[in-house]
């Protein structure tokens, strides 16, 4: 089947982005796996319809974010905070890698605490998408994206520096 090798190749190339989008919407490992399966099934069905208009990354991110919204709605409450692993004890390549891992986990936790309306443009910005692409993916006005990113940056700064923030779910 000609579609499978393409699908595998697309997955291999964009797996890190999909994993990060999923992780930003779900902390529980089991539910994260279910959400990832949902996304992959949706992508498997949607990819044949991709007509090449726009970047493939943006297409994948759009499908992923759509499924994440449905997942968050099904989950009812805000994502449960799972216990973080002890990265320092498992660092294989030194203190620098452990510190980077710890910053990444703190950033991920801070992103998860953002309201969904701020979380989604933040995740896409961190993935390298520009305001126009983000507006297209989320169906927003570019000005709205800029406003939300300004608020989100302030909230993240507060969260990462341990200060109380007004932006909570």
């Amino acid at each position: 089947m000609g579609r499978d090798p393409d699908f595998e190749r697309v997955l291999a190339e964009h797996r890190p982005m999909l994993m990060r989008i999923v992780a930003s919407h779900e902390a529980d490992p089991e539910r994260r796996r279910d959400l990832l399966q949902d996304i992959l099934l949706a992508l498997w069905r949607a990819l044949p319809g991709y007509r090449g208009d726009g970047e493939l990354r943006a297409f994948l991110a759009r499908v992923a974010h759509n499924r994440c919204v449905s997942h968050v709605a099904r989950a009812v409450a805000e994502p449960a905070t799972a216990a973080l692993h002890d990265q320092l004890a498992q660092a294989a390549d030194g203190i620098e890698a452990a510190e980077r891992q710890q910053r990444q986990e703190r950033l991920l936790a801070a992103v998860r605490r953002l309201p969904l309306g701020l979380r989604q443009p933040v995740v896409l910005t961190l993935e390298g998408f520009g305001p126009k692409d983000i507006a297209d993916i989320l169906g927003l006005n570019p000005n709205t994206v800029s406003i939300r990113l300004t608020r989100a940056k302030a909230a993240l700064r507060s969260a990462l520096m341990g200060e109380p923030s007004d932006e909570r779910e």
């Binding site: 996304i39 099934l41 449905s70 989320l138």
Partner: peptide, 16 residues
């Protein structure tokens, strides 16, 4: 059974 191909988050929400 599947609304994963909605064009935007807004459309996906409306569909849901």
């Amino acid at each position: 059974r599947d609304a994963g191909s909605a064009d935007s988050v807004r459309d996906a929400l409306r569909t849901s």
